[in-house]
Amino acid sequence: MKIRQVSVFIQNQPGRLLAILEVMEKESINLRALSISESGEFGIVRMIFPDADRGIEALRDAGFTARMDWIVSAEIPDVPGGLLNNVVKPLSEAGINLKYFYASTDATTNKTIVVLKADDLDKADQILTGK
């Protein structure tokens, strides 16, 4: 399924992630998933909200540089080989290159939610939805 992700630019310094989370708390915005990539002096924080519009608005209002992108999310079983057989292998066989991905597991349902960005997003979505 294609979903919207909000990314924020931060400097790689103590307190910056805190500042983002404080905005979320203040605005009572729930966070479904989060990942951080860092490169020396700066980082990119990627987030999935139940309501992406509200999330990005709150961050922009707080002065952050933020952007919205389409990515793909897929629900897979939390079993050995789950990621391999349900996501990585089918995409690899279709010649699709992953740009980044992150995941969160819900122990109560034994399901893992994977979100990812690929060079051919529509094709990746088709393949993962077909599974």
């Binding site: 490169s39 952007r67 740009k99 960005k117």
Partner: peptide, 8 residues
């Protein structure tokens, strides 16, 4: 700004 580190 890009969400992809390689572009940054």
């Amino acid at each position: 700004f890009s969400d992809e580190m390689s572009k940054m």
